[in-house]
């Protein structure tokens, strides 16, 4: 397989959501000594961009989206040890702490966003569902994350998104983090009202928002 074929196959594996193929192609790249940053940027990432486009055009639905994100993660899992070994810093999107706020066990939407962010090159710390507010801050402090994403599916628990911002203020940490909110009852208006830094209505929009917030393209 020449380089162009390799890159094209990587692109296709991501678009098709083919985890096994995406990983095998990563192994092939490592074996043939290809420029790994190039295969990421010109092979896999364009596939992921294509998936985003297909979603926005209404061609792709959640199962396709999540399969492509999983394929991307599988590819990166193969490339990561090799990159580490060669001391190459793959272009990372930044560190993100994410979770569903306390009192709320809904995690489907949060999982999607976490998966898409991870596929998009972010270092994601997923704390799960029903997460105590203090834990978001502890984790963000511990790993040096710049962004905290809060999910809530209930109008009764969405107030915890607001409480987290208050908690950051109390600790004098508000300016250190960008706080993004999502979930069925959240909205741009709600984000403004509680002094959050942003709101996204779905997983694709969330990745774009996080990218903007972390100073990416």
């Amino acid at each position: 397989m020449n380089k162009d074929e390799l890159l094209r196959s990587m692109n296709e594996a991501i678009v098709a959501g083919n985890k096994a193929a995406a990983a095998a192609l990563g192994a092939e790249a490592v074996r043939s000594g290809a420029d790994l940053l190039e295969v990421i940027e010109k092979g896999y990432v364009p596939g992921l961009q294509k998936v985003g486009e297909l979603w926005e055009q209404g061609e792709y639905f959640l199962p396709e989206l999540i399969s492509s994100a999983e394929a991307m993660k599988a590819a990166m899992a193969v490339l990561k040890p090799e990159l580490d070994r060669k001391n190459i810093e793959a272009q990372r999107g930044g560190k993100v702490v994410i979770g569903t706020v306390e009192g709320d066990i809904h995690d489907i939407g949060k999982n999607l966003v976490a998966s898409m962010l991870q596929a998009g090159g972010f270092e994601v710390y997923d704390l799960g569902a029903d997460v105590k507010l203090e834990r978001f801050i502890e984790k963000a402090e511990a790993v040096g994350a710049g962004i905290i994403c809060l999910s809530a599916l209930l109008t009764t628990t969405m107030t915890n998104q607001k409480r987290l911002i208050g908690l950051l203020r109390e600790k004098g940490l508000r300016d250190k983090y960008k706080v993004l909110v999502g979930g069925a009852p959240a909205s741009h208006k709600w984000a403004d009202e509680i002094g959050a830094d942003g709101y996204a209505e779905n997983a694709v929009a969330a990745v774009k928002l996080v990218r903007t917030m972390s100073g990416g393209d």
Binding site: G58, F61, L62, P63, I108, G109, L112, A184, N202
Partner: peptide, 8 residues
């Protein structure tokens, strides 16, 4: 019937 577009 989970909505595969909106997640609703």
């Amino acid at each position: 019937s989970f909505d595969m577009r909106k997640g609703t």
